[in-house]
Simulated assay, not measured.
Amino acid sequence: MQVIRTIAWIVLTAVLVAFIAMNWTKVPVNFWPLADGNYFHFEWPVGVVALLFFGFGMLPVWAYLRAVRWRLNRRIASLENSLRATSMASLATPAEAAPVASDTIPTETPSEIEKS
């Protein structure tokens, strides 16, 4: 499985490098309108702009998934602690001896059983 994951990462990296290499022309990116009617902008290569905004789009999803993982890890730890506390409490109290029926206890000693 590790080989497949490595190959997938290599292919993804090659595709991204090829995309950036083919789209290296610079384009103006307008960020904010200014008071004089112009825009505050940068001129960046298309590939860099695409990767940057892809990362910005992925950021909220990543943050949400990290929060879910954190919450689930806290819940698991809480359940483990309560289970540990319950098992320690049951070990601390002596187990009650089960009553033994008097008809199952042999009244004869082993030597008497051998004689008969």
Rank of each mutant, 00 (worst) to 15 (best):
V29G: 01
F31K: 02
E96H: 03
P45F: 12
G57Y: 14
E114M: 07
T93W: 03
A89Y: 05
L91H: 14
T107V: 06
V100W: 02
E80D: 10
V61K: 03
I20T: 13
V48R: 05
G55P: 00
E96M: 05
W62G: 00
Y39S: 04
I4P: 04
L72N: 11
I76N: 00
P33Y: 03
F19R: 06
I76F: 02
Y64A: 15
K26V: 10
Q2F: 00
A97P: 00
A21S: 10
S87W: 13
K26N: 07
E96R: 12
I4R: 14
G47W: 05
S102G: 03
L72C: 01
L12M: 08
I76M: 03
F19I: 08
V68L: 13
V61E: 03
R75N: 07
S82L: 11
W62F: 14
A63Y: 04
A67T: 10
T109D: 06
I113K: 11
T13K: 01
F53C: 06
A95V: 10
L12V: 09
I4N: 15
A92Q: 07
P106E: 09
L16Q: 10
D36H: 01
N38W: 06
N23C: 08
T25Y: 04
T93P: 02
F53S: 03
R66F: 08
T109H: 09
F31D: 02
R5Y: 15
A98M: 09
L34D: 10
A89T: 04
T93H: 04
A101E: 07
T104A: 09
A101L: 04
R5C: 07
V15Y: 08
V100S: 01
A67H: 08
K26D: 05
A67W: 08
H41Y: 03
L16K: 01
S82K: 12
A97E: 15
A101T: 00
E112R: 12
V17Q: 06
V100A: 07
W62E: 01
L12K: 07
R84P: 02
F53T: 07
V49R: 01
L51E: 00
A14D: 01
A98N: 09
L51I: 14
L12I: 09
P94A: 14
M1Q: 06
P28L: 10
A101K: 07
A101F: 00
G55S: 12
T6G: 07
P28I: 05
A98L: 09
I10S: 12
V100G: 02
V27P: 01
A95K: 13
P99R: 01
M1R: 04
A97H: 12
S82F: 13
W62I: 06
G57D: 07
G37Y: 04
P60R: 02
F42S: 07
R71V: 03
L72R: 08
E80K: 15
S87M: 11
A14G: 08
R5S: 11
F40L: 15
A21C: 03
P28D: 15
V46E: 04
N73E: 08
E43F: 09
V3T: 12
